[in-house]
């Protein structure tokens, strides 16, 4: 298992210093292997450290306890092999759509024509033709997140990290983005780690769902989602889908209640 895993968390822990100066444990003893091409959702109540786990994998937050390996090498910092999409979009507001998408390409030694071609292809993929010269603040939330996805995919990362990427969008837009994400994944499969607190979203998108418990966060259970014909319309109304949602919701609800009672 370990040898075939693209990403492996090995007894990862993390604590942060509170305002009062005390060390608060946020994550404890997290171990998880993710195979090449797998879509794994990290699901849990707010404050369970699921985003922190993603930031550790991204190399944004230094790893002090345990180890995270990507393709066998320990993570020591951010890298182009791990693309990231944030809930807040994190677009460069002073750059146009085109400049945002091209940003990562400019840092690879590619000929200019190749950069342009790739940028155009990605903007096309996320259906933003005609908006190339708009600034992010002139776009809707859904469009901004498409730009962020295109910007990340432009540098061709092996792994896609998504931190509640659709959490800031309205319900309809979120549905559309789910379908588009699956369509993109079908065309260009990628190992994906997806943080969410939305049970239905996790079931709809993920191959496996890791349910996290709060304070200090650790992985409580990993549920494999086996939904044939995921991209068919109406899959969300099938009994199998409903059963998965029910089961995961039970696990998460328990955690939320326990976390509250523990305070």
């Amino acid at each position: 298992m370990t040898s075939s895993a693209l990403i492996s968390f090995d007894r990862v822990g993390h604590s942060y210093r509170s305002n009062a100066g005390v060390l608060v444990p946020a994550l404890a003893d997290v171990s998880l292997d993710i195979a090449q091409g797998e879509f794994v959702a990290l699901l849990g109540p707010s404050g369970c450290g699921k985003s922190t786990l993603l930031y550790l994998l991204g190399g944004f937050v230094p790893i002090r306890d345990g180890e995270i390996r990507v393709a066998g090498k320990p993570v020591t910092g951010p890298g182009r092999d791990r693309g990231v999409v944030f809930q807040s979009f994190a677009l460069f507001p002073w750059k146009t759509v085109r400049q945002n998408v091209r940003y990562g390409l400019e840092r690879m030694s590619l000929p200019r024509a190749e950069q342009e071609a790739r940028t155009a292809r990605l903007i096309d993929m996320v259906h933003l033709n005609g908006f190339e010269d708009h600034f992010p603040l002139q776009l809707s939330g859904g469009m901004r997140q498409r730009v962020a996805i295109a910007r990340t995919l432009a540098v061709d990362p092996a792994i896609l990290l998504m931190d509640e990427p659709f959490g800031a969008l309205d319900a309809q837009t979120r549905e559309i983005m789910h379908e588009e994400l699956l369509a993109i994944m079908a065309r260009r499969p990628m190992t994906t780690v997806f943080v969410t607190h939305d049970v239905r979203e996790a079931v709809y998108l993920a191959d496996r769902v890791a349910v996290m418990s709060a304070r200090p966060g650790h992985i409580k259970e990993v549920v494999t989602i086996d939904l044939p014909g995921r991209t068919e319309p109406g899959v969300q109304k099938t009994a199998a889908f409903g059963a998965y949602v029910e089961r995961l919701w039970g696990l998460v609800k328990n955690e939320a209640v326990q976390a509250a009672a523990g305070r």
């Binding site: 930031y55 991204g58 190399g59 944004f60 910092g77 951010p78 890298g79 182009r80 791990r82 693309g83 990231v84 944030f86 807040s88 994190a90 460069f92 940003y103 990562g104 840092r107 690879m108 962020a148 910007r151 990340t152 540098v155 990362p157």
Partner: peptide
């Protein structure tokens, strides 16, 4: 400056 802005830039090769 939002930290996610800095992180995005880092993971894009800055």
């Amino acid at each position: 400056v939002e930290r996610t802005l800095l992180w995005s830039a880092r993971s894009l090769g800055t």
